[in-house]
């Protein structure tokens, strides 16, 4: 690790100010950033920890039924506090990494990092969530811009994430054997006005919506509605753990299973 300065502000405005200095970087739970720094692959001059900001913590149900999660809320808190209001999301959070990762890692850090195999991006995209930052509100459909790429500007902080709560939802995660991130993960969310299906782990462009499946499920929310639908292997990730063909196949299997579990 290289040397760095450390700040732990108590408010969003102080954090935003602290991030204005040269080479400063936000620190959530550090579950991605700290290992990267230990390997000397990242070299921020200053870390601005977001974990001391009260207004970025916690889970609450809004008047319209939407669920707002503070940007610095750890996965373990989401797993516990969202269990009643949005069980599929709580289950997803409760199955990220191991207890240490869940107690430190945050929703904001996960969405900011946008690892192509991460779980939260699938939930945010399938739920049609809104990513709220210190500067603006970004709909999930505009937020994810490819592997490790997002709409966030330099120094912009995810302060909270607002999830509309679907009528029914389910997340199917197929573990990559080594990392136990998603080799492929599929989040299916059924709303009154339609169905959204988001696939993580599979595409070289990061998390994406499977629109053919959404259309089919919109008129008939059953596994049978997906018969004959397949994703092309083209553009899927191929690595030690799975070929593009396998990932495309798996996405379809998991979508069916998610529908069955949600129905």
């Amino acid at each position: 690790m290289y040397e760095f300065e450390f700040e732990r502000p108590g408010s969003i405005s102080d954090a935003v100010a602290a991030l204005k200095t040269d080479e400063a970087q936000a620190l959530g739970g550090g579950q991605t950033l700290i290992p990267t720094m230990k390997q000397r692959l990242a070299n921020p001059a200053k870390l601005v920890s977001l974990t001391g900001i009260g207004e970025m913590q916690g889970v609450c149900v809004e008047d319209d039924g939407a669920l707002t999660i503070g940007g610095a809320t750890p996965h373990a808190v989401v797993a516990e506090k969202a269990a009643a209001s949005y069980p599929a999301l709580a289950a997803l959070a409760g199955n990220i990494g191991d207890p240490a990762v869940r107690n430190r890692g945050t929703i904001g850090g996960s969405l900011a990092n946008n690892d192509p195999s991460a779980c939260y991006p699938a939930a945010a995209l399938a739920s049609g969530a809104v990513i709220v930052t210190n500067a603006r509100e970004i709909p999930a459909d505009d937020y994810f811009q490819g592997m490790f790429a997002t709409a966030l500007e330099e120094g912009e902080i995810i302060t909270s994430v607002r999830f509309p709560v679907p009528r029914a939802a389910n997340y199917q995660k197929f573990d990559q054997a080594a990392s136990r991130f998603a080799l492929v993960g599929v989040f299916v969310a059924r709303f009154d006005d339609g169905v959204r299906v988001a696939v993580t782990g599979a595409s070289e462009d990061g998390v994406f919506r499977w629109s053919e499946a959404e259309a089919a499920l919109g008129s008939d929310f059953s596994a049978a509605a997906l018969d004959g639908l397949a994703l092309p292997a083209d553009g899927m990730i191929g690595d030690l753990h799975g070929t593009p063909e396998y990932r495309a196949h798996l996405a379809a299997v998991l979508t069916r299973r998610a529908v069955q579990a949600a129905a």
Binding site: A177, A178, S179, D239, L240, H241
Partner: peptide, 20 residues
């Protein structure tokens, strides 16, 4: 599985890719 690519770079170089 310990796997090298054709240039001899170790692809399974950490527990993210080497499954214990």
């Amino acid at each position: 599985g310990c796997v090298y690519d054709a240039d001899g770079q170790l692809l399974s170089a950490s527990y993210m890719d080497y499954a214990m």
